[in-house]
Design a protein around this nucleic acid. Structure first.
Length: 493
RNA sequence: GCCCCCAUCGUCUAGUGGACCAGGACGUGGCCCUUUCAAGGCUAAAACUGGAGUUCGAAUCUCCACGGGGGCACCA
C-alpha cells in the first residue's frame, strides 16, 4: 500500500459553462479523496487569457457547492499549497521553465508565429506531420537567456529526445509505449510569460503533491509529453486516470452546442447551473453522472455518502458513455421519493413562489405526501399542487362531464354527492369515502365517473393528487363551494 | 494525413479462462393493483462487432479487419 495520503484535484479552466462532464471530472477525484481520508483540491487553470470568461470561476464554485462536492483547498478557501489560481503563480512557472532549460530538457525559442505558420503549411502541403522544425533547438542557452532578458519575445519549448521511446501508464488502460520521434517540442512557457497546460499542470500537481491525476481522456495523447516533463524534473509520477467522454444520446459523437440546445427543448440540460431551475436535485444528477463511467453490479441508487463508501477507482470504465436523460429522470424521481417530507417541502417551495403563489407552509407539508411519488422533477409539483394555493379553480365545463354521461346526468351526480358531503361533520378520507362509494353503487356508475366529476370540480383539473386526501386539505367549506359552482356550470351547459 | 484510445441488450453497465443457454439498472411490451396521474408487485422481449489464433475450455488472452471516439496550437 502506498503510505502517502491521497491528494486529488479538479482543475477546470474558466472558459465557459460548467457542464455535466466537468461535474463528473470533479466527482471522481472528490470520491477518491473522501473514500481514503485524503484531500480534494480545486485549482483554477486560467492561463489562457484569450478564452477567459468572467464569472466562469464563480459558476464552477456554485456548481460544486450545489452538488455537494466540497473541496479542502481552493482559490476561495485557501490552503497550504496556494495560490490556487494559475495566473497568480506565474513566477513559479517561469522559474521551473528556465530550470528545465538549465537541465538541458528545454530551450528558449525565438521563432515568430508567422514563420511557424509557414512551416506548418509547408509541412501539410507535403503531407508531413505538422511539427516544430527545431530552428532554435541548438541555440546557445546563455545567448538565449541574454536575448530573453533584453526583452525579446521568447517561448520555452520542451527538448524532446529524437530517439528512444517512453512507456506511460494509465490506471484504467495499462502501460503504453510511444516513440519519442512521434512527439513534438511542445511550448511550455508562452511569450506572454504564462505557461501552457503541459507545464502548469505538471508543476502544480507536483507542488500540490497530487497523488492521482483524474482528468478527461482528451489528455491521453499528451501523457507521454507529461511523463517526459515529470521525469526531466526528476519528480515522482502520480497515478494517471483518464476518464471517458460523454457522448450525445444517440451515442454518435460527443455533446455539442447543438445537442445542448436540443436537450433544453426537452426539459433537460448538460449545464449544471440549469439543472436546479429545471427541477433536478443534486442527488439525482450526481447518481446519474456517477454511473456513467463507473460500473456497479447491483444496487445503483446511491447518495453521495453511498458513493464515498463504495467508490473504487478500478471500477471506472474507459469507454465513452452516451447521455441518457431518461435515466436522469429516473434517478431524480427516485431520490425525490427518498427525501424526508420537510426536506422535500423546503425544496419544492421556491417553485411555487417562482409562480407568484402564496405558500402556506403547514399546508404544503400536508400536500407533500400526496405528490411525492408523482414527481420526476421538483417543478412537476406545480401541475399537481398549484391549485391548492389558489382561491378559486376554473374547471373546463367539458371536463366536468363524466365519461358516458350527459351534462345533465353529471349535474345530477354532482348534486347527490353535494348532499352527502354537506351532511358530513368533516371531510376526511375515512368519513367521506364510504358514503360516496355507496352512492357510486346505488347509481350503478363507476368510481371513475363519480370521483372524476368531483375531482374536476374541486381541483379544476382531470389529473390531481388522490381526491379524498386533497379534499381534506382544501377543507369542507371550499369543497362544497366548488361542487356547487360545478353544478351550476353543468346545468348551464 | 499521422498518432492514441475504446468495443457485452436501444442506453448505462456486471463480468479479469470453466460457477454465463451472460447478471443488474433505465427504457419498451404484458399482467396485477387502482378514483385520475403516479408509485408498487410480477413478467416478457433484448447483447458478447467480425475473422484468425492460444487453450481440454474464451465474453474474458493475442493478432488482424470493420466500427466508434479522442488528439495532433504561444487552447485547455
Amino acid at each position: 500500500m502506498d503510505p502517502k495520503p491521497v491528494r486529488t484535484r479538479f482543475a477546470p479552466s474558466p472558459t465557459g459553462r460548467m457542464h455535466l462532464g466537468s461535474a463528473r471530472s470533479a466527482l471522481y477525484p472528490f470520491l477518491l479523496a473522501r473514500r481514503t481520508g485524503g484531500t480534494f483540491i480545486l485549482r483554477i487553470e486560467d492561463t489562457d487569457q484569450k478564452r477567459f470568461v468572467p464569472g466562469a470561476e464563480q459558476e464552477l464554485i456554485d456548481g460544486l457547492h450545489w452538488l455537494g462536492i466540497n473541496y479542502d483547498e481552493g482559490p476561495d478557501v485557501g490552503g497550504p499549497c496556494g495560490p490556487y489560481r494559475q495566473t497568480e503563480r506565474r513566477e513559479i512557472y517561469h522559474e521551473y521553465a528556465w530550470k528545465l532549460v538549465e537541465l538541458g530538457h528545454a530551450f528558449p525559442c525565438f521563432c515568430t508565429p508567422d514563420r511557424l505558420d509557414k512551416v506548418r503549411q509547408e509541412q501539410m502541403k507535403n503531407k508531413q506531420n505538422p511539427r516544430y522544425d527545431g530552428a532554435c533547438r541548438n541555440l546557445n542557452p546563455d545567448e538565449g537567456r541574454r536575448r530573453a532578458a533584453s526583452g525579446e519575445k521568447v517561448v520555452i519549448r520542451f527538448k524532446m529526445p529524437k530517439e528512444g521511446s517512453i512507456t506511460t501508464t494509465d490506471l484504467l488502460r495499462g502501460p503504453s509505449t510511444t516513440e519519442n520521434s512521434a512527439l513534438d517540442d511542445s511550448v511550455l512557457l508562452k511569450s506572454d510569460g504564462l505557461p501552457t497546460y503541459h507545464l502548469a499542470a505538471m508543476v502544480d500537481d507536483h507542488l500540490m503533491e497530487i497523488t492521482h491525476v483524474i482528468r478527461g481522456s482528451e489528455w491521453l495523447p499528451s501523457l507521454p509529453l507529461h511523463t517526459h516533463i515529470i521525469r526531466a524534473f526528476g519528480w515522482e509520477e502520480p497515478q494517471f486516470v483518464h476518464l471517458s467522454v460523454f457522448l450525445k444520446p444517440s451515442g454518435k459523437g460527443k455533446m455539442s452546442k447543438r445537442e445542448a440546445a436540443e436537450a433544453i427543448q426537452d426539459g433537460h440540460s448538460i449545464y449544471v447551473s440549469e439543472m436546479q431551475s429545471l427541477g433536478y436535485i443534486p442527488e439525482g444528477v450526481l447518481n446519474w453522472i456517477a454511473l456513467m463511467g463507473w460500473g456497479v453490479s447491483e444496487g445503483d441508487v446511491l447518495t453521495l455518502d453511498d458513493m464515498i463508501a463504495r467508490f473504487d477507482i478500478h471500477n471506472l470504465t474507459p469507454s465513452p458513455a452516451a447521455m441518457n436523460f431518461a435515466k436522469l429522470d429516473h434517478f431524480n424521481a427516485t431520490h425525490i421519493r427518498l427525501l424526508r417530507t420537510d426536506d422535500l417541502a423546503a425544496r419544492v417551495k421556491p417553485y411555487f413562489l417562482r409562480e407568484g403563489l402564496a405558500v402556506d407552509d403547514a399546508k404544503l407539508l400536508k400536500i407533500i405526501p400526496l405528490i411525492r411519488e408523482r414527481l420526476v422533477t421538483l417543478d412537476d409539483s406545480l401541475p399537481f399542487a398549484a391549485w391548492f394555493f389558489k382561491e378559486t379553480v376554473e374547471p373546463k365545463p367539458a371536463d366536468l362531464v363524466a365519461k358516458n354521461l350527459t351534462a345533465a346526468q353529471s349535474a345530477d351526480v354532482a348534486r347527490k354527492a353535494y348532499e352527502i358531503l354537506a351532511a358530513l361533520s368533516e371531510i376526511t378520507p375515512a368519513v367521506a369515502e364510504p358514503p360516496l362509494r355507496l352512492l357510486v353503487e346505488q347509481l350503478g356508475l363507476s368510481p371513475n365517473q363519480v370521483f372524476g366529476i368531483l375531482r374536476v370540480a374541486v381541483t379544476g383539473q382531470t389529473v390531481s393528487p388522490p381526491l379524498f386526501e386533497s379534499m381534506e386539505i382544501v377543507g369542507k367549506e371550499k369543497v362544497l363551494e366548488r361542487v356547487k359552482k360545478a353544478i351550476k356550470v353543468l346545468e348551464s351547459t
